[in-house]
Write a protein that binds this DNA or RNA. Sequence first.
RNA 1: GGCGCCAUCGUCUAGUGGUUAGGACACCACGCUUUCAAUGUGGUAACCGGGGUUCGACUCCCCGUGGCGCUACCA
Length: 478
Amino acid sequence: MVRTRFAPSPTGYLHVGGLRTALYNYIFARKHHGSFVLRIEDTDQERKVEGAIENLIETLKWTGIIPDEGPGFGGDYGPYIQSERLELYRRHAEILLEKELAYYCFCSQERLERLRQEQIAKKQPPRYDNHCRNLPADEVKRKLQSREKFVIRMKTPLQGSVEVRDLIRGKVSFSADVLDDQILIKSDGFPTYHLANVVDDHFMKISHVIRGEEWLPSTPKHVLLYEYFNWKSPEFAHLPLLLNPDRSKLSKRHGDVAVESYRQKGYLAEALINFLALLGWNPGTDREIFTLGELIELFSVEKVSKAGAVFNLGKLNWMNSVYIRSMDINRLVELAKPFVPQHFYADENKFKEVLSIIRDGLTTLSEIEEKAALFYAKQIDYSTREAINILRKESARKVLSTLLENLSGLKKLDGRVFIEVMRKTGMETSCKGTELWMPVRVALTGQIHGPEIVKIVEVLGREEVLLRLEEAIKYADE
RNA sequence: GGCGCCAUCGUCUAGUGGUUAGGACACCACGCUUUCAAUGUGGUAACCGGGGUUCGACUCCCCGUGGCGCUACCA
């Protein structure tokens, strides 16, 4: 039975790198008809952020990467929040203590800090000096009784090596003597990541640990812990990192890393997922656009690449525009609503027409308001430089007044009729091409760029077209 | 500094000993067109370096170099 997990710490928002990790875990579990577990790693009391868990779950739901088990999702292996499992970690630290595979350490943070500074000054690798590793039993007892502060550390082998098997990188070997006697239980009684993640992965029956590459160096310690407990170790797969354009680990400094902010900016969940999936993996074909279902079908961990991948916003933009252009129009209407004023969709049919006209030019949903504005404007602004330049031309005034005249006799105005009238106007004014159409565009929209004029006319309708033509002529005459 | 991972166009990548080194984004040119966009066609652009192994290396091995990650009572 395949069981994977996504185990973020609730320090605020969902990171795009985190989302990709979650995605791969999800896809892998689905592919093998297994379960995908969400676990909250909140063992650092200082970094805890109010509301972060709710926010994380809400954002995850938006992306469509829905856990089978987790806080609020049910499951037989809970609780899924580590701060609610403290007793379990404490008990297991004690098991290690009894086996003499762990020990109490009474070193103060000041001593540790001093030690590190000295080591750095001497150009030695900073690491714990095993000061408390062989403390006499009675001294330990005495210190404990006098309530001295302590942490519990694991004993790492003094020699030999530890081998990690990784599904993406093969065998990775670490010399044991570079392994620190890692803290398992902190002085506040909370476990560190290392203990908690091993204990939880075991009891939650996690079969595959798929996580970021930054965890690779601490994996030998985890492997050791599985051995100490006599547990079967899960399979590991360490994903390549997501990178900034300068190739450092993706961070806030270079732009947005919060999934929510991409949502706010009008990126579609499907596009973001599709884009993220291809950052570090691809099925070996020329295809670029995949549904989640297709990703599940095609995915394989072995094909995950080893090198980090730059988060390329330009490509995300392109992909988002592909999704906007090709998605069902009714769905687009719904997705667009939060991005525009309510009166835009008071007439839903009109809004749908507007969207179908402007969608080809969109990169994100947040551009809709601006691009759709011309269809809802009460008043057109002709005062821009380029508008004035067009309107003030003699030929433009001739075109507009002739067009107005030709139009005003009409009872009904649709696209076909409009084209006919434009043809007539062109003949009467001996204007054609840009000279003929551009004044109309500016009169109708105040802008020199935009959707096809015939389509604009169809949406605007006769009254509005007439009104705007009159306004433009009036403005040109002033 | 130590340990580990990695290395094909600017970017994401395909490629598993013999290829004109393929695709996508971006960029450029041209076409379409009432503008912009979309779209169509074409184009510029890459195997980090040095040694091996081999009849033959982008591909396998070693050594450099470079990048990144880790090196906390953070995850």
